[in-house]
Amino acid sequence: MSRQLLEEDRPVGSDVTPFGTRLRAAMDARGPLCAGIDPHPSLLAAWDLSDDPSGLERFALTATEALAPQVSVVKPQSAFFERHGSRGIAVLEQVIALSREAGAIVLLDGKRGDIGSTVRAYADAYLEPSSPLFVDAVTAHPYLGYGSLRPFFDSADRFGCGVFVLALTSNPEGPEVQAARQPDGRTVAGSLLDRIAAANAGAVPLGSVGAVVGATVGETGEDFARLNGPILAPGFGAQGGTAADLKRIFGAGLPHVLPATSRGLLQAGPTMQGLREAAARTAEELAAVLT
Rank of each mutant, 00 (worst) to 15 (best):
P172F: 03
L44Y: 08
F19C: 10
F153R: 05
G20P: 02
V289W: 10
R24Y: 03
R281D: 15
S78E: 12
C34F: 03
L108D: 06
V289Y: 10
D154N: 12
E173C: 13
W47N: 11
P205C: 02
L206Y: 00
P18F: 00
L43Y: 08
G241M: 10
F159I: 12
V71H: 00
T169R: 09
E8P: 06
S78F: 11
C34V: 06
P11I: 05
V217D: 05
A104N: 03
Y146A: 13
P175F: 02
R226T: 07
G253P: 01
R120Y: 09
P11Y: 05
L56Y: 07
P32C: 08
P132M: 04
S170F: 02
R120K: 14
Y122W: 02
P270I: 00
V289S: 15
G237N: 05
A198K: 00
S54M: 08
P255Y: 05
N200D: 05
E222S: 02
H256V: 02
G36M: 07
G221K: 12
Q70M: 14
P259L: 09
A179N: 14
G20F: 06
A25R: 06
E7W: 03
A198H: 01
G85F: 06
G221M: 12
R112M: 00
A287L: 11
T118F: 08
A46T: 11
L275H: 07
Y126R: 03
T62K: 00
R112E: 01
Y122D: 08
C161P: 13
P53S: 08
A66L: 01
D28C: 14
A283R: 15
I89W: 13
R112G: 00
F250E: 05
D154G: 10
L149E: 08
Y143G: 09
N171Y: 05
A66T: 04
P205H: 04
R58F: 06
D124L: 12
G174C: 04
S78T: 12
E222F: 12
V163F: 01
G36H: 00
I196V: 04
L149F: 11
T187N: 03
G218T: 10
A125Q: 04
F250L: 05
P259N: 09
E128W: 11
E277Y: 07
V188K: 05
D51C: 14
S191H: 15
P234R: 05
E8V: 15
G210Q: 09
D9N: 13
S72Y: 03
L43K: 09
R112V: 00
L107W: 01
R30A: 14
R186C: 10
P259E: 09
D15M: 15
R30F: 10
T118R: 08
R22I: 06
D51S: 13
G160I: 05
P76R: 02
L254F: 06
F224L: 14
A104K: 00
S2P: 04
A279V: 04
L193P: 08
G85S: 05
A102T: 03
T21K: 13
R195M: 03
P18I: 02
F59N: 02
R3K: 12
G190E: 11
D51Y: 10
E7T: 13
D154M: 07
Q70C: 06
C161F: 11
I37D: 01
R158W: 03
Y143A: 08
S262L: 08
D48E: 14
L33G: 07
R120H: 13
V12D: 14
E57C: 10
A201W: 04
A203P: 01
A97M: 01
